[in-house]
Simulated assay, not measured.
Amino acid sequence: MTHFAVIDLGSNSVRLSVWSVKADGQPVAETKAKEMVRLSEDMGDEMTLKEPAIARTIAALQKFKAIYSPLEDLTIKAYATAATRQAKNQKKFLKRVQDEVGLQIEVIPGVREAELDYVGVINTLNVQSGLIMDTGGASTELVLVQNRQLEHRISIPFGSVNLTEHFVHHDPITPGDLFRLWSSVTNVFNGIWWLREAQNLPIIALGGSNRTLAKVQRRKHHFRNFEDIHGFRMLSRNVNRVFAEIVDADVEARKAIPGLSRDRADIIVAGLVPVVTMLRFIDADKIIFSQNGLREGALYEYLQGTQRVAADENVVDETLTDFTVDD
């Protein structure tokens, strides 16, 4: 029996997924693990990873190594996204991981991250068209899907952690902070010309902040497995109700909201502004939630022996490298 593992080193959390692969090629999920490391915390204008965040990340990766190292016939992929991608001390950080964990990490561009999200979604959700939106700690990936084909994609350098650091200066957030945050996010969306093609399509939401909406809603309605949100649909009016409840609360009160992780209480408002803004921007009536994204995309590429699923010359790779804020 072979094994396949993926590590997704994000800006807020690091995650591990492990599958065994049967002789007929069918994957069986074996292990999932997550550690909140806040790798992008306090990167500042100098855009350097700080020692406390590096130490937390290496400790988490060492925990993961204890899980995957005993496995036989293992193929492992380790991807780093926005925080590492943006860091000026990226090479030094990667060398420390190599030296202390024995793990080689591939830093992928935002459009590659978006592509893997698309592969993970399209192989596990029955959706024809929609806007995939993956809000992480320091980047947000958007993918326009039409008739199950990837049409456009872009990576935007904002997420729950860096938006919080830029805009959320009070607890609870003030109307002025919220307005400046909302305006800056809207200005970025205004500059993405192809979003007009997403009008009235559902949003397919990935990322811990976005998934929080579904978990809070499911807890309100007493779902037995409230965290099992893959394929769960939520109307925009219910999204707005949950978001209003979160915005009205301070950090301590948010920690008590059922379905909202205490580890996200301080960054959840800024983390949700992009998806709530997008609902209005494209006039979507619902969100469809996906638990599968980058890691599952890597799995299906491995199983199918494919990569660069959107290599068609008509698909343009786009990445925003600058996000100017007025705070």
Rank of each mutant, 00 (worst) to 15 (best):
T81Q: 01
G136R: 01
Y300L: 07
R211K: 15
L260K: 12
L235E: 14
Y118L: 03
A205K: 10
N238V: 00
A249C: 14
V315C: 03
L71I: 04
R241M: 11
V247P: 05
H230S: 08
G102Y: 07
V101Y: 03
E197I: 00
R15F: 00
A78F: 00
A284M: 09
E72P: 11
I58Q: 02
S155P: 05
G44D: 12
T174E: 02
M1K: 06
V275A: 10
L16G: 04
P274V: 06
G44I: 06
E41I: 02
I7R: 03
M234F: 03
V216H: 08
E113H: 06
Q307K: 13
D322L: 08
E41Q: 14
I246V: 09
S13F: 01
V315Y: 06
I246S: 07
E252D: 13
Q304D: 12
D285Y: 05
K77A: 01
A249W: 09
W182I: 05
A244E: 14
H169W: 00
F323Y: 12
I246D: 01
Q307H: 13
T321A: 11
V145M: 15
Q90I: 07
N123I: 06
L150P: 08
I108G: 04
V14H: 00
R112H: 11
R196D: 15
L294K: 05
K92Q: 15
S183G: 00
D73S: 11
K65V: 01
T186I: 04
M47G: 03
T140P: 11
I257K: 12
V188F: 03
N200H: 14
A311D: 14
P175C: 09
T186W: 07
R241G: 01
R241F: 11
L144H: 13
L94G: 10
T81M: 01
S209N: 07
T306I: 15
A114N: 03
A311L: 13
T2C: 06
K77P: 00
A298F: 00
V269H: 04
E296I: 10
G44H: 07
H230N: 11
I282M: 03
